[in-house]
Design a protein around this nucleic acid. Sequence first.
DNA 1: TATATATATGTCAAATTCGGCATATTTATG
DNA 2: CATAAATATGCCGAATTTGACATATATATA
Lengths: 108, 108
Amino acid sequence: MDKKKQKVLEEKGFQVGSAAEFLELTPEEEAYIDIRLDISNMVKKQRAKRGWTQEQLARAIGSSQSRIAKLEGGDPGISMDLMIKALLRLGTSKKQIGKLLEGELEAV
Amino acid sequence: MDKKKQKVLEEKGFQVGSAAEFLELTPEEEAYIDIRLDISNMVKKQRAKRGWTQEQLARAIGSSQSRIAKLEGGDPGISMDLMIKALLRLGTSKKQIGKLLEGELEAV
DNA sequence: TATATATATGTCAAATTCGGCATATTTATG
DNA sequence: CATAAATATGCCGAATTTGACATATATATA
């Protein structure tokens, strides 16, 4: 894992190793973060595509604007459950989410 | 949604409507539960395939046996984050998870 | 049958995530 | 530029999820 990517992750609040030995995510940890970022980016893209505000999306799933902002910003303090609920509410199907994770869905 | 499926979900602890008007999940709610159950079933299948005990998987992701049991049982009090971490630790790739959601992965 | 191993179920305090709210910052629009 | 709309950031108490532990139940193995 290159340092640029690590820095970006740490800025977002991910605990990428201790302060002393700030190195190496396991492949599982990398994949986990990768999946989360894919989904959060998809939410941002789909919401924009539909012309919704963060406020609108938030109300539609019983959440709040600040949570949606954090979700789209890749904040680690947001659960995948909330991210998936947002995606589904935006009209994304389970199948499309699958394609997203497969890497076959650069733009839905 | 048929009553049999609803009963199963309610037995697992899902809040499928109030006691009075116990009816109708929105398509999003259905898809959300569907995704969760797909993933939890996949964890069970993959763990069995590798011959791991729940205890082994739990230790491997810093969790506990009881949590894995609940995860595999479809307990709603388990986060998707924990489920995904378990799947990844079992060697399932992001791409395979995608295929699972696409419905192209009855058995990995 | 016993005995051991694996899984299920329930409870607890601690940690995390929650929605809501205030407000700072950015972006659009006049 | 000003003014408004959208988004980002930080904090709060409430709710949820956490690992842990105990223990009940089920399953395998002798």
